[in-house]
Amino acid sequence: MIPAPFDHITPVTLDEAIRALTSHGEEAKLLAGGHSLLPLMKLRLASPKLLIDLSKIPGLAGIRQEGDKMTVGALTTHYQIESSELLKEKCPLLPQTARVIGDVQVRNRGTIGGSLAHADPAADLAAAMLALGAELRVRGAQGERWLKAEEFFLDLMTTALSPSEILTEIRVPVLSGRCGTAYLKLPQKASGFALVGVAVWLRADGGLCADIGVGVTGLGAKPFRAVRVERHLRRKRLEPALIETASAEVTLRIEPLGDIHASAEFRAHLARLYTYRAIVEAARTAGISLTKAKGK
């Protein structure tokens, strides 16, 4: 369990890190908390020649409000997100999601930027990013750009980041008005990774669902936004039967993953069930009362 040899540098500015990344190309990897990368390196599934450690660059971690947006630095740990009073008030879906990642030790080291850039198909925070329509700030040699969460995840462990770009921060909306949120997952028992995880936020207007975002992780090769489910419920009066019909659409045009932990069929079943449950829970926290559906 010892990684292949590599060099390790600790740039103190973002520009320095981008220069190192540009000159070393595919041979280099960025190191944030290391809780996705180091396990791969120990298994020799990844053998970068150079680790560019971002931990000494000031300003990459932290949570702040900017008007109607919350900004979370890429090096902010899952624990910092889980325990942020500001986020609990302004965008509770993030702490709700962060608190069920891995275990305490993992949450102490793992970072939001590291997790998103790694793009594990079962990463929890990816679901919340997609549900919230997060914007991701990316810096590279050519300057800066913003990507929507939906544009960011391309495939299994593949993102829209070019080899010389660094994800620096994440922007999510402040949830104002009568909003409800939920992140529900069925964790794989040993690893804690989501077999399926569903993140939901919705805004209530009386008994109506004024707006809704649904992000799904674990089901397919990449986390995705369940646009069909959202469309089915937007501007509708939420009833259990309607939520059930909408939730059934979560698996449309998705090829579910199957492995030793859960077959593709079982994952698809879980996706429909957890979508239903997460929407019901989000509706409940938004103050919409639903009559209980049979068998749920």
């Binding site: 390790h8 305490v104 993992v106 102490n108």
Partner: peptide, 18 residues
């Protein structure tokens, strides 16, 4: 598990240089 700057970490998943 050890404490690293006040946070419990799994020291098999931290490099000494970190």
């Amino acid at each position: 598990t050890v404490m690293l700057d006040g946070a419990a970490v799994k020291s098999c998943t931290v490099l000494a240089v970190q």
